[in-house]
């Protein structure tokens, strides 16, 4: 079993993000040295393709970048240039997909190589694809940056593949930001803030056919095989938060049991989580909330309470209200 990456483990392959960031900043007259100040990344590292960053370095880098950048559009711009910075294999794999869901599946399989800070929970209903996102490796410290960047990437990819705008419903787990105009410009009008989790819902009927740019004859199997080889070479494939959240989504694990699994003492597990600016309880709540929201799309609140092992439905209602500030019934058709 692969161990999850702790906050200071060199674990993340994000040269593409760093490289496009450096290029953007250079273009606006800010040197890479300023951008890297205090991160422990050096300009010489940029040339080494296999250099890994620790979550701590990544977060420090984002913090520097947001401080130095004039304007509110950094994450959106980075999203636009995302594809150009990816390796040949990955880019071809994406673009040569025969439809959008195939491209998404391909990206999802290898997202540790491109978006290691993401954790994805998928729910397919009759008419919609619902994707719930949560953040790994301490990225929730700059959650707006990461979510903006992600959806800008999606938009730009979708447009490149279909020559159309992506129409989707978005919810963001934070209050309305000051750069609201950018959200409307890039993501459209169906946007909700202060939601319990971050989600994107796409109507299946609205998905456009792929406007083929290259022939579909490229051997997708070969590409997958090659990218998979790169993925297998990585020393880590999940962050601590993502690992714990996944376990907690599947079954009830106490802090002590989790610590034992990870060969840590409970106190040091707590410390490790604190480094990522989170706690075991927060992760537990998040996992439960995602389970509850997904279950609510198919069942009545009372059944959901039973499904999730609550003693009674009023107990579930109370807990749900603590998480979201609202009753479960209000979220009955949120992911319909």
């Amino acid at each position: 079993m692969l161990v999850p990456a702790f906050y200071r483990d060199k674990s993340l392959k994000c040269q593409s993000l760093v490289a496009s960031m450096v290029a953007l900043f250079k273009q606006r007259g800010i040197s890479a040295d300023k951008l890297f100040k205090g991160t422990g990344i050096f300009v010489a590292d940029l040339k080494q393709m296999d250099k890994l960053l620790s979550p701590q370095q990544l977060n420090q880098l984002i913090e520097n970048a947001l401080k130095l950048w004039k304007g509110d559009d950094l994450s959106f711009l980075l999203g636009q240039f995302w594809l150009a910075e990816q390796s040949q294999q990955l880019a071809t794999g994406l673009i040569s997909s025969s439809d959008i869901s195939q491209a998404f599946a391909f990206w999802n399989k290898f997202k540790w190589l491109t978006h290691p800070w993401l954790q994805i929970h998928l729910l397919e209903t009759q008419d919609y694809w619902h994707v719930i996102f949560s953040l790994d490796v301490g990225a929730q410290q700059h959650q707006d940056f990461f979510y903006e960047n992600l959806f800008a990437t999606f938009q730009s990819m979708y447009k490149q593949m279909t020559k159309q705008q992506l129409k989707a419903v978005y919810s963001f787990p934070y209050p309305q930001p000051k750069q609201l105009a950018y959200y409307h410009k890039y993501f459209g009008q169906d946007i909700e803030f202060s939601a319990p989790v971050c989600r994107m819902s796409i109507c299946k009927a609205a998905l456009q056919p792929v406007y083929s740019q290259i022939s579909h004859n490229t051997s997708t199997r070969l590409i997958e095989h090659n990218v998979y080889k790169v993925l297998k070479e990585q020393p880590f494939r999940k962050g601590l938060q993502g690992y714990i959240r996944k376990q907690l989504k599947q079954n009830k694990v106490s802090l002590d049991e989790m610590a034992e699994q990870l060969a840590l003492s409970p106190a040091s597990l707590k410390r490790r989580l604190k480094e990522c600016q989170t706690s075991y309880q927060a992760l537990h709540d998040e996992a439960q909330l995602i389970n509850a929201l997904m279950a609510l799309s198919q069942h009545e609140p009372n059944d959901v309470a039973k499904q999730l092992d609550y003693r009674d439905s009023s107990n579930f209602r109370r807990t749900f209200k603590r998480w979201t500030g609202e009753l479960p019934s209000n979220y009955r058709l949120w992911l319909a």
Partner: peptide, 21 residues
């Protein structure tokens, strides 16, 4: 006000993009 403008723009853009390749 700005929402209405955005909405109109989106509709225009959506019908445009396929044609204006």
């Amino acid at each position: 006000l700005i929402g209405v403008l955005n909405q109109k723009m989106e509709t225009i853009k959506f019908s445009n993009t396929a044609v204006n390749k």
